[in-house]
Amino acid sequence: MIPLYHDFAGESVLVFGGGAVGARKAARFADEARVVVASPAFDDRLAELAREGGRSGAEGPTVELVRAAPDPEAVGEWIDRLGPALVVAATDDAAVNAAAEAAALDAGLLVNRTDASAADRSGSRDVGSVVVPATVEDDPVRVALSTGGASPALAKALRERVEAEIDGAGAMAELSGELRAELRERGIDPQTRREAIRRVVRSEGVWKGLQKGRSNGRQEAYSVIEEVLKG
């Protein structure tokens, strides 16, 4: 499998299953997409998520809980009616999960199946079947981690280790992007721009400066860039 990022802004995600796994999946997508969860019962975290909503500034709740227990024959109707970009099969009924997966794939949609049957087939997933990775974020930097469904526990452990490693990466990404634009406006040739930015993002002085504040980090970065420009 090849990892890709997908923009769910303005899209819907349909989750079958309101237990702990369904709650975790709904929370994962609620900040970007409208999430509809179909289940006969809901985890407490889902009820709280539905009350709080996801995206800041969104009109109305971004997580909608529908109390229902779709059987394998009915899941296709749900998918046709809601037209989601992604279907998550997270119930404790393998038959329902399999039906949801099949219906989503028949409709040409992405599907994330969470039960053991999907994990057993992790090496030979169908086209359209996706794994939702563990992520670490320091906006706008985002790192995705996946074990292909083989070991969620390992993915979680790796996420905790990576969190410490990328601390401050968001500020560095913003600063280096601004500096690249400034160098372009100054007419610096592309090769020199690339070398200057490469030196900035690898400079311990710039990283340490950013920890003290953006102005300190920028000052350190200017010193690094001037060294490159002087040759």
Score class of each variant (00 low, 15 high):
M1V: 14
M1K: 14
E11Y: 05
A20C: 03
A23K: 05
R24A: 07
K25F: 01
R28M: 03
R28I: 00
A30M: 08
D31Y: 00
E32K: 06
D44Y: 04
R45G: 14
E48S: 13
G53E: 02
G53S: 04
R55G: 08
A58S: 06
V63K: 06
A68D: 14
G76A: 04
W78D: 06
L82D: 07
P84K: 00
V87M: 02
V87D: 02
A89W: 00
A95V: 10
N97I: 03
A102Y: 01
A102M: 02
A104S: 12
G108K: 03
L109C: 10
N112E: 00
D115R: 00
D120Q: 08
R121N: 12
G123F: 01
V127P: 15
V127Y: 06
S129I: 03
V130S: 08
V132G: 09
T135N: 07
E137N: 11
E137T: 13
D139E: 11
V141A: 11
V143F: 04
A144D: 09
G149M: 03
A150Q: 14
A153L: 06
K156I: 07
L158D: 07
R161D: 11
V162P: 14
V162H: 11
A164K: 15
E165W: 06
D167V: 14
A169K: 10
G170K: 05
A171K: 12
M172L: 15
E174Y: 01
E182M: 08
L183P: 15
E185S: 12
G187I: 04
I188R: 14
P190W: 00
P190D: 02
R199Q: 07
V200H: 09
V201C: 02
E204T: 12
W207C: 02
K212V: 12
N216M: 06
G217L: 00
Q219K: 13
Y222G: 03
S223F: 07
V224N: 08
V224G: 06
L229F: 00
